[in-house]
Design a protein around this nucleic acid. Sequence first.
RNA 1: CGCGGGAUGGAGCAGUCGGUAGCUCGUCGGGCUCAUAACCCGAAGGUCGUGAGGUUCAAGUCCCACUCCCGCAACCA
Length: 656
Amino acid sequence: MSQQKYYITTPIYYPSGKWHLGTCYTTVICDALARFKRMQGYDVFYLTGTDEHGQKIDDVAKSVGVPVKEYIDKVVKELRELWGLLDISYDKFIRTTDDYHEKAVQKIFEKLYAQGDIYKDEYEGYYCKPCESFWTKSQLVDGKCPDCGREVSLMKEESYFFRLSKYQDRLIKLIEENPEFLQPKSRQNEMLNNFLRPGLQDISVSRTSFDWGVKVPFDPKHVVYVWIDALTNYITALGYGSDDTTLFEKYWPADLHMMGKEIVRFHSIIWPAILMALDIPLPKKVYGHGWLLLSGDKISKSKGNAVDPVILSERYGVDAVRYYLLREIPFGQDGSYSNRAFISRINSDLANDFGNLVSRSTAMCSQYFGGIVPERGEIEEVDKSLIDVCNGAYEKVAKAMDSLLVPEALEEIWKIIIRANKYIDETTPWLLAKDESKRARLQSVIYNLIEAIRMANVLVSPFLTKSYVEVFKKIGVTDEYLEGFGSLEFGTMRSGAKVEKGEALFKRIDIEKDVKELEAIAEKAEAEKNKKAEKKEDEKAENTVTFEEITIDDFAKINLRVGKVASAEKVEKADKLLKLGVDLGEGRIRTVVSGIAKWYAPDEMVGKEIILVANLKPCKLRGIMSEGMILCASDEDGNLAIVSPSKPMKAGSEVR
RNA sequence: CGCGGGAUGGAGCAGUCGGUAGCUCGUCGGGCUCAUAACCCGAAGGUCGUGAGGUUCAAGUCCCACUCCCGCAACCA
């Protein structure tokens, strides 16, 4: 029987900033799946990597003042260290700047061009630089980027297009007829209703506006855009387009592309279309998981309450982080992170249930039998239910894993642990120990306990990559066979192993104390981040001030007026905005929306004199037309004060 | 009428094709003392957001209306 293969991928990550828990979520899930499959005997290939081209990266690197490649190398190194820390067992880490990838991308591009799936045309649109996206005129909101609200600029560029529209019918058929292809199901409807059925447009697959990317071989002023550059990593990593396609032939098609829901569209529409064009088999499954949202515990003062996976791992151990991600987040749906939930999960499942079970069992084995696992004797009625749970677990766990229901898989494993804890109470070994005539029974009980722990631990090993080693050590398992799925038949372990009690597997955490400490850490990090950002801005400002002098004429363009606040109210559904009625002595009250709600209550604004930029182009904020801007001073500590004339002045007085 | 998600015992969630409302944590009571103030048993606690709405023999579950919350502003997985 030839070995079955299993090819699993994470998306390739974009190294523009710091790594966070969400990235870890995707990667840890894939890791657990990959490890589980390996233990099942599959020949697994687990791919992850980084998507390193594009203007944004170029910009970020420039803003830091470092050559792009150098900048990326640093960030990528951090990422690989993070994966090392989290025990991610990837088989390959692809970088889109890798030589073989770039060559293969060029080949693919040429091939598609040669066969007419890529053609050259012209592209006109409004470009938002920070978002790296083009918009049509109708998509703009008040002439600004619909995504971020920032300025856009009209750009016309010549571009190569991929004939996505040509594959529309095949794609619809693919999703309708293969419900397994795109999961969970809610995503199928989303794709069909929002994109496929309304009709696909050809997509632009090259850029001339920046050059940090793979050159189009026959037209080097063009750079290959993300769709073809990034998505193809899944095949180029296997050697597609190179001289050696052994891996590609062995592992393709992918068994699972795992990703967050926001990029499902690219993987379920554009990617299959590219593969169709290349006449390559399609991946078996594309799975869009939910997001990990940050919530609660008061740290979310504003927004930047990043949860740093490194800090958590260092404080509580890698397995704690892995376990939380795998266990707490309902798969396919959004989940939320909170320090409290995290710690509480660790305490109850890892410390109380699992760790303590190991402690009490090994302690008894040491105390009663000098640490040598005793012979197993007659099976009694009580033993049977423990044995049944142990023997039935593998099948249930495997089934859950096949359906990508990782939390459920862990739940099944924990049933063994919970049953074993109960078993101790039922059999009361400490009483048996007092009665010499019950010696044989005591032996059985202790054996059963250690065996149950062994079996649970075998199943736990793809998930808790550090702890399982510890547990095997504690219960004296050294035989590799006893660590594999093949040994999941109760009674497989023989007596005689040397058990050691040792230290607690997972320490209990004081929730109140640690939640406070974590908040403090987060606040400190946040403060530092802000400081840095401001410092950078200051520096920038200092540098640019001298260059960007303005003339008195420029200043004269700005019409500043004293205004009296006639009315003030909060803008609904906006925490920062106040809607003000301002009197400029014009015989009417202007409506001005200002982002000062955090610092000023509506009541205290009424009657205040303020300075207004009176000739600012009106702009819609939260659906309200704002006719002007109030001048405020702000400092690095986040204070904000409205500027007022030092003596009462008539409304409408000019300021200069 | 911007889009999407949600509203179930104190908290976080399950509840598939409509048929006696479950789980984890917490609380309270008990047990036990091998163990990491852990473990085991038991109990309390829900008119399943609102509408004395509709369909039905039967609705948390389907239909309608309404209210409220949350994300879309992020470290974009």
